[in-house]
Design a protein around this nucleic acid. Structure first.
Length: 131
RNA sequence: UGGUGCGGUCCAAACGAUCGUCGGGUUAAUUUUUAUUAAUCCGGAGGAAAGUCCGAACACCGCAGGGCAGGGUGCUCCAUAACCUGGAGUCACGGCAACGUGAAGGAAAGUGCAACAGAGAGCAGACCGCCCGGCACUCAACUCAGAAUUUAUUCGUCUGGUUGAUUGGAAUGACAACUUGUGAGUUGAGUGCCGGGUAAGGGUGAAACGGUGCGGUAAGAGCGCACCAGUUUCCCGGGUGACCGGGGAAGCUAUGUAAACCCCACCCGGUGCAAGACCAAAUAGGGGAGUGCUUGAGGGCGGCCCGUCCAAGCUCCCGGGUAGGUCGCAAGAGAUGACGGGUAACCGUCAUACAUAAGAUGAAUGAUCGUUGUCCGGUCCGGGGUAACCCGAAUCGGAAACAGAAUUCGGCUUACUGGCCGCACCGACCG
RNA sequence: GUCCCCAUCGUCUAGCCUGGCCCAGGACACCGGCCUUUCACGCCGGCGACAGGGGUUCGAAUCCCCUUGGGGACG
């Protein structure tokens, strides 16, 4: 039930790697919209729901939401996963073609992964998204 | 030197580089304000932040006062804002000991329960056993003819066998003697039944109505006595008190369970920051005012017209309130240090710092790389030792826990890594 | 975050308040046997649980405390 997210808004002018608060998805209605109308790709550790940004309004950045349910683990583990996902998005959002609203959902199996494994897993999913 | 008990304290790997995150200060830009962005500086998780098990602060609702119901607490004194908390003690239990554990008031206020086993389980009980009496049977030993009184009468004189004498036709009858016991009696022992006494012994149970000894008795019993234990009560001494020590008296016994109901004493109104206060979009709906007219939507009064009322619609205003936002929300029952009081928990005084120094809200402290240190294991080298082993160094591999502030404090409980310090106890060896 | 509730065989449950007859009963499932040419049905038998740890009591699934694991309510 309880999920957490981070969004990004990126003007790309000064800092290319930062995540402002406006670059994140924070409101429940937006998450509900994504889960209802978004497209879905996934592997064994993560699910990504996405909607092209152009179809909404003309902002020039992607926005990120993160969902880690309580079933994944305790608070320390959930916070760690969220940080890793945020870190990956921060460093790799430039590689995306176009602008998207994303919701990255961690599955239960993600709890056991090391940071390197999280990055490779997300890298493959971002590769799929690029196509 | 081995084993053990108790307490205190520190860290929660460190440093650097790059890229990032939240809050605050300053400056600049944009901007009516709010705010946004950039630069820079400062600050940014824990001892348990956890579980949410207690207690409070705070907020709203309720409330004259008292009681009932319900819930909580339960040895004493002290500490505290308060406590199911802490400190110092008391008592009980466990441990050789240091020490640990304890919801530890009341069972002679009442009610309930105590399975199974056992004779009997709560003002108990007689199964075996022990003792007394009666009846029956068995065995053994002894006795079987005299006894009573009016001295001469009365009553009694078993069974079988042998012999004798007597009567008679005939003795097996009667009489006498001897003998015998299958009869009778007495005594003793045993067995069974009946009636009674007894709680010392046996056995059951978690628990059996004080323990040991002597006396006592038919056998026994606090029935009596001595000592011990326990109960109630009185006195003396010590202690604020729980309680401890000593002495006397009574009665002769009272089981356990109150984390069973209950009684007694003390405490407790409810809800919880998603409390609560404020600002407030869109949509729908509510209230008020106006309009509803010349081309009269609709309806009521009316047969119709006029008139009048209701009213859709339209315009304006008001209040409640959802999304969302702001506050509550970080300077306090506080922290550190010194001094003083107290055995201690803790308290008092003074000083200092907090640029108001975590303050998030789909929720901030992270990622990557490098260097160094700690611990464990393997290999190898050096030193010490008879040896087990110990110390130092190199190298390879591995490990570094439990866990993330959510209104704030005081506790409790649970999870868990490494190190340091202090005190105490038991054992072995050496001197 | 705050506040509540629950936990018994593989599954669904009874027993708990009022402790003992309970090494815990029932149904379905599973295993074995009988029946049948065989399977199913039926019959007989078996296996199988008190979430964990302490405490109270002579005795605990039941009473008390702690922990663990599930579930729910509140914007």
């Amino acid at each position: 039930m309880r999920e957490e997210k981070i969004s990004i808004d990126d003007r790309l002018t000064a800092s290319q790697f930062g995540i402002k608060k406006s670059h994140r998805i924070l409101k429940r209605p937006e998450f509900v919209f994504l889960s209802k109308y978004g497209n879905k790709i996934q592997d064994s550790n993560f699910i990504i729901l996405y909607v092209p940004r152009e179809s909404i309004e003309g902002s020039e950045h992607s926005r990120l939401g993160i969902t880690v349910s309580k079933r994944v683990g305790n608070a320390v583990l959930r916070n760690r996963l969220k940080r890793l996902i945020r870190e990956y998005f921060r460093l790799n959002k430039k590689g995306l073609t176009g602008y998207w609203n994303l919701n990255i959902i961690a599955k239960k199996t993600a709890a056991a992964l090391s940071s390197q494994e999280v990055f490779t897993s997300l890298g493959m999913l971002f590769g799929k998204l690029r196509r």
